[in-house]
Amino acid sequence: MLQTLSSTTPPVIESGNQTKTRARVSRDDRNTAGHPFVDKPRMSCRDVNVYYGDKKAINSVSIDIAENEVLAMIGPSGCGKSTFLRCLNRMNDTIAICRVDGTIKLDDQDIYDKKIDVVPLRAQVGMVFQKPNPFPKSIYENVAYGPRIHGLADAKTELDAIVERSLIKAGLWDEVKDRLDQPGTGLSGGQQQRLCIARAIAVGPEVILMDEPCSALDPIATATIEELISELKLQYTIVIVTHNMQQAARVSQRTAYFHLGDLLEVGQTDKLFTRPSHQLTEDYITGRFG
């Protein structure tokens, strides 16, 4: 079953198939149901706890992220899915009171190891944020900034090539190729978000983290980004946090359901949405709360 994870066929929810399977896991159980682990994980997290001061935000989460898959993380607001996502490239380091324990490995390297430098880590694990946040500079500069600070291009032509390739991959090239010198902040919301994606892929990451990338966008821009995600997963491993369950169902191969800091269920997206094993997962996806 796990070998089919990287297949590109989008999971389908067949409404006719929803014969009410009885939830096997009761509401009070806080262990992870389903299949959180895979054979050859790109990233693997074990017993991750996150604290904000004295408050525990993430409670012993263990999950694997497979190569070239899209993993969706869903759950009600405040359940810790964004916090967990930000652990994966150590963006939580910027919050002084935030403390992380447990192990998170990227290709068998513990990213919280003292010897690990966050700068190359963040080049490997890129991030796209909830609100499009292009730099107040030109479109070209937005994309070129990452390669430039990492020294990825020696010559101007090389940098131009990286910018063009990244913008093409982000599906933005045709729209902006004639105005690369204009400010990135002048683009529409959806274009800005694709610019941010181009900026993230310009430094050649292996994993891309997306924190509700479409929550500030209209449905048309959302559809464009979702198409883009489906293309990007051929090359990158993507972890996406979303509030939109249809979106999770459309773009992801596996889905993880978070609830108040606990990871309650991980499974193949089509299975999780049709036959959830945890009672709380079923409550959430059927709209009983959330």
Binding site: N89, M91, V119, G126, M127, F129, N133, F135, V203
Partner: peptide, 14 residues
């Protein structure tokens, strides 16, 4: 805005 800091840090700026 903190989003500018996050954007820079997110692509690996020190």
């Amino acid at each position: 805005p903190p989003s500018i800091r996050e954007a820079a840090l997110g692509i690996g700026a020190s």
